[in-house]
């Protein structure tokens, strides 16, 4: 069994098992917590609307802070959209997802995906530079921030090298790319990457509670 065989076989299976175990563990652990009973009378009944509204609102820059947060926010949007394009637009990825879900869709032209990958990588590097150079940001950054950045960046970088056949024999490039994605899967539920599944949950909860209390959001 060579590196690629391991990556495509037991490696991926193991990484996915850890990913699913970690995800369900953390989500179940949070969702099954007892909600504090609220004895106050609800001001409005539109909790779901409030939840949705806060999710949208917090995803947009607030006008007061736009000048301060505009640059990182734009970069963040850029690389998140880029990641979605890469993950769901490249045929090789669609074929992988198809083996698990049974569904597939049309792929995007490779040129567009390559462009998205380049933009994504550039935006991620720019954000890392900002994190390292911004005094406050650097102070509040810990190992989790840097490691999460790394495990998210590696699949993009190694994927680009594999597509371009740069830096080694293709089977090794592909194996390293798949292994880097497996590292991402393993780390995902246990580090800050978990925000991908918790961000809407926490915002929605806040939105619902604030709406119930009749607070302006």
């Amino acid at each position: 069994m060579n590196l690629l065989d391991f990556a495509r076989g037991p490696g991926l299976q193991g990484a996915l098992a850890i990913f699913l175990f970690g995800m369900t563990w953390r989500l179940a652990g949070i969702l099954l917590l007892r909600r504090k009973t609220d004895f106050s009378v609800a001001r409005t009944g539109d909790w779901w609307f409030g939840a949705f509204r806060l999710i949208v609102q917090r995803s947009l820059p607030r006008r007061e802070f736009a000048s301060a947060t505009g640059y990182p926010l734009a970069l963040s949007y850029l690389f998140h959209i880029g990641l979605v394009i890469i993950l769901f637009g490249l045929n090789q990825h669609i074929l992988l997802l198809r083996t698990y879900t049974g569904i597939s869709w049309s792929n995007l032209p490779s040129g567009l995906v390559n462009l998205a990958a380049a933009v994504t990588a550039a935006a991620m590097v720019a954000l890392l530079i900002r994190r390292l150079s911004h005094p406050v940001l650097r102070l509040i950054s810990n190992f989790d921030d840097y490691f999460s950045w790394l495990v998210a960046f590696l699949p993009v970088a190694t994927g680009m090298l594999a597509v371009a056949h740069l830096g080694g024999r293709y089977e090794n490039l592909l194996a390293i790319h798949i292994l880097s994605a497996e590292l991402l899967l393993v780390w995902f539920p246990f580090g800050k990457l978990m925000h991908a599944s918790l961000i809407f949950l926490s915002r929605g909860t806040s939105g619902a509670l604030l709406t119930r209390k009749g607070a302006a959001i």
Binding site: R8, P10, L16, F21, L96, T99
Partner: peptide, 21 residues
């Protein structure tokens, strides 16, 4: 396809998810 996994044991993954829950 070359990018697809060669080992996708769905029941085992379901067990992993169940264990997580």
């Amino acid at each position: 396809p070359l990018s697809a996994s060669t080992w996708h044991d769905i029941p085992a993954l379901a067990i992993a998810a169940g264990a997580g829950v």
